[in-house]
């Protein structure tokens, strides 16, 4: 696992330059922290490169890093069916938590179609905006719901269309 991630890191640096990604290897699964601006290009390269073929996007998770941290993290879990590799990509975006200024990450729904619904879910529950997404509507909650429930500072409204929800 360690070896795979350094190989992929070297591959990305050769293609995009030094600033593209850093390795984070604190836990059981090391991850690559990717520059948000380069994310779609990185994903496309990892999907199509003959040494990686990360053709399967398992999961996209949006994480609220906490009120003090002032950042949101979006985590991408990739799998390569031909090689049986797994890889974790992370994108960290600073944000001030205002509801009219959502953290913004480029969409990867052009790379994997399954990202479409996952990004809608992250937008719906965590309030992360995905630039270039073809259809970024709320998916699980009603379209007139207020706020983003998985945020640490979320406070639910008292009423929704005359129904007490608290």
């Amino acid at each position: 696992m360690e070896e795979l991630i350094t190989r992929i890191h070297a591959l990305l640096i050769a293609q995009f330059g030094e600033q593209v990604a850093t390795i984070e290897s604190s836990g059981l699964q090391p991850a690559l922290v990717v520059d948000p601006a380069l994310l779609p290009q990185v994903c496309l390269l990892l999907r199509d490169h003959e040494d990686t073929y990360f053709d399967f996007l398992s999961c996209i998770s949006a994480v609220d890093d906490g009120i003090e941290a002032g950042t949101f993290t979006v985590v991408y879990h990739l799998a390569s069916i031909p090689y049986n590799y797994q890889l974790t990509l992370k994108v960290v975006v600073p944000n001030d938590r205002r509801l009219d200024n959502l953290p913004s990450v480029p969409s990867v729904s052009g790379v994997w179609r399954t990202a479409d619904w996952h990004e809608r879910e992250a937008f719906d529950l965590m309030g992360v905006y995905f630039e270039g997404h073809p259809d970024l509507r709320r998916i699980l909650l009603p379209e007139d719901w207020e706020g983003y429930p998985l945020r640490k500072d979320y406070e639910e409204a008292e009423m929704y269309h005359g129904i007490a929800i608290k």
Binding site: D100, E146, G147, E155, E158
Partner: peptide, 12 residues
């Protein structure tokens, strides 16, 4: 009926 005090005017 007490509605949420957060400003969501911009949403509309």
């Amino acid at each position: 009926m007490q509605l949420s005090t957060r400003s969501t005017d911009n949403m509309s």
